[in-house]
Amino acid sequence: MIASRKHGFIFIKTMKTAGTSIELALSTVCGPDDILTPIGVEHDRLRADAGIEPRNFSDTLEARYLKALRKRNNKLMRPVLRELEASGLWAHALPDAIKARVGRKFWKSAVKVASERHPYEKALSRAYHSYRKTTPFAEHLDRVVFEERFYIGHRYYIQGGKVIAGFFVRHNLLNEDFARLCNRLALPSLKLP
């Protein structure tokens, strides 16, 4: 999740929709007061190598995470990431958690951006990436579909029957939509990694 006061947008990160690519690209134009939640051990290390650190995401966990990140200590980073997920304000934060952090006024005025993809493709993508060959693939796919349900997207951008996102980056039109987003937010034309 990114909340950029500098550019007036909030990026709500759904799952399995190229959200990390979008987040990495948008991170490069954020200011010191913007909120950048951690992405995960590997991506945060990559982002830190480029001089970009997560920031302003937690009053209690941030110092610990940054200390661990600066030491490139994965073992210390992981428990903080788990605590952050439990707190609700993590990479895939839902609207209410974001609203609580950024405040009602900015929440209302910001362009809320989300990426989305056909749920069948999201389910398959998740199943392929998480498959460890310890069970038959069909069984694993059943677990992804019927139990994990990471493909559900609407809770990130529909509240009380109303669509709260003002801009969608569609996975099947990723580059085109991202270019339109940069244009809409008056950002330089950014490249998706």
């Binding site: 989305e116 056909h118 749920p119 069948y120 493709e121 389910a123 398959l124 796919l141 059943d142 579909v145 019927f146 349900r149 493909y151 559900i152 997207g153 609407h154 529909i158 669509v163 969608f168 569609r170």
Partner: peptide
């Protein structure tokens, strides 16, 4: 292979039930 063809009919039906609002919003095929 399209995702639709890998998933079973019961898996597709379940996903559709869970994701009805986004199917409607984006006009996706079931």
């Amino acid at each position: 292979t399209p995702a639709r063809d890998v998933l079973s009919p019961s898996q597709r039906d379940f996903i559709y039930e869970q994701c009805a609002p986004e199917f409607e919003l984006f006009g996706w095929e079931r």
